[in-house]
Design a protein around this nucleic acid. Structure first.
Lengths: 111, 111
DNA sequence: TGGCTATATAGCCATATGGCTATCGAATCA
DNA sequence: TGATTCGATAGCCATATGGCTATATAGCCA
């Protein structure tokens, strides 16, 4: 278990905001410009740009250029480490649910 | 895709700190008291308590009591939603790696 | 060139975060 | 009872975060 990881820090921090998660979800469908990304939100354009910078800093998106547009696209690979980190706990929550199932089954049988 | 989720916010935010991730990793091995949890870190006891509160608020841990001790244990199920959220992108990063593999294979063949 | 469009940057504000020390409260033990 | 131990809480500080408006920059079009 890596004791420190600025990359994980940045990734999880980036994912902790609902606006940024929505942006990532949108980008999963294909690249989009800043104005397209901003459109669903009641937030100013600079605020969206700030969110994009956070996502970029975490490596979760990257930007190209198309004239005066800066289309962003997803870099889903940047989520891999975060996913791996969480997945290590999967057996523990599975086990929990198994126990619950077993418990419910027992309770049912007893009633 | 849920548009808002305070629970996901709190979970990802909790995971964004290396101290807290280390605490979770420790708790994956079994419950532990505050002083046990604090021991590996060069941080004051109140600072650890603050981190524990963040983890508790995210539902990632829970506390019991044993005399004047408050042993914490992991609630790994609380990671499930976060894991599910991330996993939706897995095919995208797999595809990326597949593309890379294919590209490398082609390059190799050509050289 | 001038004006419009797309985006970035600067600067401000309020709140949150992560650290600390000092202190309180509760339980144990001598 | 009094001292000790475990942990929580209060209060302080510096920095980060998420929002805004105003403005700068860059590219396109008339």
């Amino acid at each position: 278990m890596a004791i420190e990881s600025p990359h994980l820090d940045a990734t999880f921090a980036a994912l902790s905001d609902p606006t940024r998660r929505a942006i990532l979800a949108r980008l999963a469908l294909g690249e989009a410009t800043v104005s397209e990304l901003a459109q669903p939100f009641a937030l100013s354009q600079p605020t969206i740009s700030k969110h994009l910078k956070v996502l970029e800093h975490a490596g979760l998106i990257e930007g190209g250029r198309d004239a005066q547009r800066r289309p962003r696209r997803l870099r889903a690979e940047a989520m891999k480490d975060a996913a791996d980190w969480i997945e290590r706990f999967r057996d523990q929550w599975d086990r929990r649910f198994d126990n619950l199932d077993r418990h419910l089954a027992t309770t049912k049988k007893e009633s």
